[in-house]
Nucleic acid binder design. Structure first.
Length: 295
DNA sequence: CTCCAGGGATGAT
DNA sequence: ATCATCCATGGA
């Protein structure tokens, strides 16, 4: 396979692909294969260099946001123990520039799902409705267009293990392909208007809207709050708060984590999932419950 | 504000 | 082989 080398300092490919932003990259040889838009791409990291499928250097550099000023972004994080630990652990993790429809559709599928399951849904949608691409002898599939999914029946989508998400994914696919909503044009909207419009789409609430803003619209201030992040916030930032509703958390995160709050969120998220020791929250919580139950 | 359906993989027993 | 657990949205 012929590869192009591009310079990629301050970048960690594996962490970036494993941090819950994208769900379709697979390990292959010494790197990963996946799609960037409609292109099938192989990429591997060698220190400060990336080797990517010949001809796709610029495509990859843009996708992996190698131009984000990561040192400056990390400097803008607040100085507190949790953030420092996450920053150290996630060195080189970048927020990818994803295609808008692919990102929106994938995150609609993600609701109430764990990462491994989201990966399977993404794979099934691609295999059944996406266009095939070859990397060497390995076949993979691009994410299907909105038009393609809009033409599906709800039943067909359900067969991709989508459950009740089939209905909202289908409804949103039809909205974005039949006129009323133009994902590309929405780039021009302010954060507030963009979030509001995304939340109008079936299957999109505050959390998924923020994910799409962060991963597909480059709104680096957007701060998605899922259960992992909420756990971190409660434990590290509000250890003894009694009433802590969504509005209070939202206000806090928007102000405290600064102009690149989305990056801070991604670092805290990845550190919580991958960095904390293996005997982490789950067993601790279970022990606590067990101890409590004895009294 | 609270409660709860929803689907399928995964981990515990 | 069962049983509990993980999870965001939307509607009651």
């Amino acid at each position: 396979m012929h590869l192009t080398e591009i310079s990629a300092s301050d970048f960690d490919l594996e962490k970036t692909l494993d941090s819950g932003q994208v769900f379709h990259w697979e390990k292959m040889d010494d790197g990963f294969c996946g799609t960037i838009g409609q292109r099938g791409v192989y990429v591997e990291q060698r220190g400060d260099e990336l080797r990517v499928t010949r001809g796709y250097g610029e495509l990859a550099a843009h996708y992996f946001a190698l131009d984000h000023p990561l040192a400056n972004i990390c400097r803008s994080f607040p100085r507190d123990p949790a953030m420092e630990a996450a920053r150290k652990f996630c060195r080189g993790l970048r927020i990818i520039r994803q295609p808008k429809w692919e990102c929106l559709a994938t995150f609609i599928c993600s609701s109430m799902k764990q990462v491994t399951h989201i990966r399977q849904i993404s794979r099934k949608l691609r295999e059944r409705f996406g266009d095939a691409r070859k990397i060497g002898h390995h076949e993979l599939f691009a994410f299907p267009s909105g038009q393609r999914l809009a033409a599906c029946s709800e039943k067909e989508l359900r067969q991709c293990a989508l459950g009740y998400r089939a209905k909202t994914l289908l409804a949103t696919a039809r909205l974005i392909t039949s006129g009323p909503v133009d994902l590309e044009r929405m780039s021009a909207l302010s954060d507030v208007d963009l979030r509001e419009m995304l939340c109008e789409l079936p299957g999109v609430g505050a959390k998924i809207a923020n994910c799409v803003m962060l991963f597909a619209y480059e709104r680096l201030h957007a701060f998605p709050i899922d259960v992992w992040i909420e756990r971190v916030l409660r434990e590290k930032y509000f250890p003894s708060a009694r009433k802590l509703n969504a509005a209070r958390l939202r206000t806090f995160t928007q102000e405290y984590f600064g102009e690149h709050g989305g990056y801070a969120q991604q670092y805290l998220f990845h550190y919580a999932r991958r960095g904390a020791s293996k005997s982490n929250n789950r067993s601790k919580i279970k022990n606590r419950i067990r101890m409590g139950a004895r009294r």
